[in-house]
Nucleic acid binder design. Structure first.
Length: 197
DNA sequence: AGTGAGATGGCCT
DNA sequence: GGCCATCTCACTA
């Protein structure tokens, strides 16, 4: 069965839609001879210019956020709290600095079955630590299938999607309550469960 | 089960 | 100098 790398076109759409549709898709990371496959179970949308919680809010352009201004399908990785990296996939067109944070995933074997500790990649920092994703992996074209890419899931993605407020964005006023976090309901690899689940 | 603090360093003003 | 799109562990109860 042929694996299809999600094409640029997939990412050139409304960010919330991309965030939602990335659930159930397969994140692939290649390091040397080793290729790891993980099913994405949790994402968050960051809406760029109009989103106080986004690094690109009000069109802020610094060296760090440069990758967010690339066309959809590029990676944006940044360091947080001095010790963790977070992986995003840029969405929308060039100079439309929106992105989807990959918050959690579960490792798969060759038959795409879950394997190992389901919580090993339950959180953006843990995910990058486990997969050795660093700043060096920022600003890479994820539609090329070289180091980092996302494949269409062999079966239709799980449809039981829950949305909730984003994590760690208190202090951004209204935006703290926007339901831009998406996750597979009750999946063991999701980082944090909402109080009202 | 829930709360709080510490680790740790680049980025931005 | 202060702020972080985090995580872990210790402590309460």
């Amino acid at each position: 069965m042929k694996k299809t790398i999600l094409p640029r076109k997939f990412y050139l759409r409304e960010t919330e839609k991309v965030a939602r549709e990335l659930l159930g898709q397969i994140l692939v990371v290649r390091a040397g001879r080793r290729t790891r496959r993980l099913m994405i179970v949790e994402t968050e949308a960051y809406l760029g210019l109009s989103d106080p919680a986004a690094h690109s809010f009000h069109g802020k352009r610094t060296e760090r956020v440069r990758a967010m201004y690339r066309p959809g399908g590029f990676s944006y990785v940044y360091l947080i709290y001095g010790m963790y990296f977070c992986l995003n996939v840029v969405t929308g067109g060039e100079d439309e600095p929106e992105a989807v944070l990959i918050r959690a995933a579960i490792a798969l074997d060759r038959a795409d079955r879950p394997t190992g500790d389901p919580r090993l990649c339950a959180g953006p920092g843990k995910l990058c630590r486990e997969l050795a994703i660093t700043k060096a992996d920022s600003d890479l074209d994820m539609t090329l299938g070289k180091r980092l890419w996302i494949e269409e899931a062999p079966r239709p993605a799980g449809v039981d999607v829950q949305s909730a407020e984003r994590v760690g964005v208190d202090g951004y006023g209204d935006a703290a309550h926007w339901p831009l976090r998406y996750y597979l309901r009750a999946h063991p690899a999701v980082s944090v469960f909402s109080k009202n689940l």
